[in-house]
Design a binder for these strands. Structure first.
Lengths: 338, 338
DNA sequence: CTGAAAGCGCTTACAG
DNA sequence: CTGAAAGCGCTTACAG
């Protein structure tokens, strides 16, 4: 059998209370006692049972992360920074991927309600789940990027209309006037924001956002490629396209190649997020960088702050985004178009 | 306060024992009792406390996954299939990324020893960690891809020498004789295997594996790009390169472009793993497909089988790999070289 | 079919 | 500085 604290106490000749203190709160016991208990613990290979500890102290030091999926260029970096921050603060991380079904999400939410985790980070707004079923969680929750809850749940993210604005202004600044957009599904809040931001930015510039120049996709590479194909089939195709994500931009680039269009000479593209999909494309594509790692870290700090009762930390946090131009020269007929 | 089983029992007018049975083991109580307890539970918003349950039944229904990192094209799909399989079998998943430091790995191993998880999936052989510090874990562990333990710990993976063999034979079959290799770090077991497999395959084909035609990198895209640059600087550069991973192949492709080399006309490339890095390159690169999702699923089933005491399931599992040629024509001077 | 009791392995007031 | 006792919230033999 695995040794318990009782075994250690017996070996060291002290009470379990003292053994517990010697191990978890060393300052409370005499030097000699501490040594004796530690020796006893290591001699019998004692390992604390954290489940028992959790039950007693009423916390698990574990947080849950909900993401729609993990298999793309966007989410992994965020999960990595969440994990790193959590570990630095003494928390373990459980993950749940919820794109598969509503049932998955409900099952994971249960873990929060069932006391297995102390709080939850949600970044699965993109699954079209609008809110938890049942009562609003009383337990700490922080959402990333997408506003899943109406209010009361702090968000860490960026202003996605600004993302779109920077992208559109970059293209317009290079002389483009017929600018298209590959949009994500309306169910993904941040991508819907980018679409709205695209239309607003075009209007501010006095450019018409022709709905025929906006093609929606489900966010996947393959689906974005179809959207680009659709844009190119337009009688007057755009000379530049703002793709809602770098992954979509990378797909659009592939389609341009198939059509014999050189990028950016024949078609200018810009993505968003700042993932490797933009950086490793050839040519590297301009993008609007979203500080995903920082968002993950901040959200984790905020969540743990809430768990620990530092409510003061809570509140929406909007981090700045940045245009990474990577040189996207003017369109062929920029002079004429301008 | 959160209602406990005691509250439910009182509301329903039964003992806590009966309340527990009604909720967790409904067959053991009378219909009317079951209904009364369920009504009581829902009326007060009772949620079971899984921590207390875990302490009592001595299992957590949670597994731990150790990966070096998550931010690439290789690991996410595996984690996704692990999570999916685990959830289907009623297990939650905790993650730990261990590339940062030995301390991280030790901290996560503690969770296993400390009873917070029932078993562990390790796929962080690539961090150069050779084994757990301390005694070999008595708890269920299954390793993926890399052999971290000498023995006694089952592995689910592929034969990486076969991976290399398929790749080399593909290139040789297209007439190449001067074949180079971009190798991963020796610390990553499976990449070291691929390197050994490369040398063996070359010998079997009567081709010389010139050590000057092998360039090692740390596995990152950037580092692989340097390795390719190095190969091209060779007085007699290879006409084809087997890159140990698709990510490396994608980096090699970028370098070829910089050097004005058309792929595959001027330089044939093949990667391995079968990730999007190969499929979304332009041109799409040939690769040797490693069934990562299936490996994740199988390993998870095996681990949970071990946890549940079905020891019979354990044992190494080697899954087949498959060449995805995607057309890689002969080198320019194939006739002369052959 | 149901209840009283023990116990999973810890921590922490309370008293000394 | 240390110990006896209570208790975190469940489950499960045991007895009826």
């Amino acid at each position: 059998m695995r040794p318990t604290l009782t075994d250690v106490a017996r070996l060291a000749g002290v009470s379990v209370a003292t053994a517990s203190r010697a191990l978890s709160n060393p300052d409370l016991v005499a030097d000699s006692t501490r040594r004796a208990v530690r020796d006893a613990a290591s001699s019998c290979g004692y390992k604390i049972n954290l489940v028992a500890r959790s039950l007693r102290i009423q916390r698990t030091d574990t947080i849950m992360v909900l993401a729609p999926h993990i298999d793309d260029a966007f989410y992994p970096a965020i999960l990595a920074s969440i994990e790193e921050t959590a570990m630095a603060l003494g928390y373990a991380v459980m993950v749940g991927f919820t794109a598969k079904s509503e049932k998955h999400r409900a099952a994971y939410a249960e873990l929060l309600f069932n006391g297995r985790v102390d709080g939850m980070l949600v970044m699965d707004g993109g699954t079209g789940v609008d809110r938890f079923s049942g009562p609003k969680p009383e337990l700490p929750v922080v959402q990333l990027f997408d506003r899943i809850y109406d209010s009361g749940v702090p968000t860490v993210g960026v202003d996605d209309r600004v993302v779109a604005d920077l992208a559109v202004r970059h293209l317009a600044g290079n002389g483009h006037r017929r600018i298209g957009h590959i949009a994500g599904p309306a169910a993904i809040w941040r991508l819907a924001e980018r679409r709205r931001g695209f239309v607003e930015a075009m209007e501010r510039l006095g450019l018409h956002a022709d709905s025929g120049q906006i093609a929606a996709c489900d966010g996947s590479w393959e689906s974005a490629a179809q959207a680009m194909t659709q844009l190119l089939a337009h009688p007057q195709p755009p000379t530049a396209v703002f793709c809602a994500t770098d992954t979509m931009a990378s797909a659009a680039l592939a389609v341009c190649r198939q059509h014999g269009l050189a990028v950016p000479r024949d078609m200018a593209l810009i993505g968003a997020d700042g993932t490797v999909d933009a950086a490793r494309s050839y040519p590297a594509l301009p993008t609007v960088h979203v500080p995903r790692a920082e968002i993950g870290g901040r959200a984790t700090e905020m969540l743990i702050g809430l768990i620990r009762g530092h409510g003061g930390l809570a509140g929406d946090t909007i981090l700045p985004v940045e245009l990474l131009p990577r040189g996207n020269p003017a369109p062929k007929h920029a002079a004429a178009a301008a």
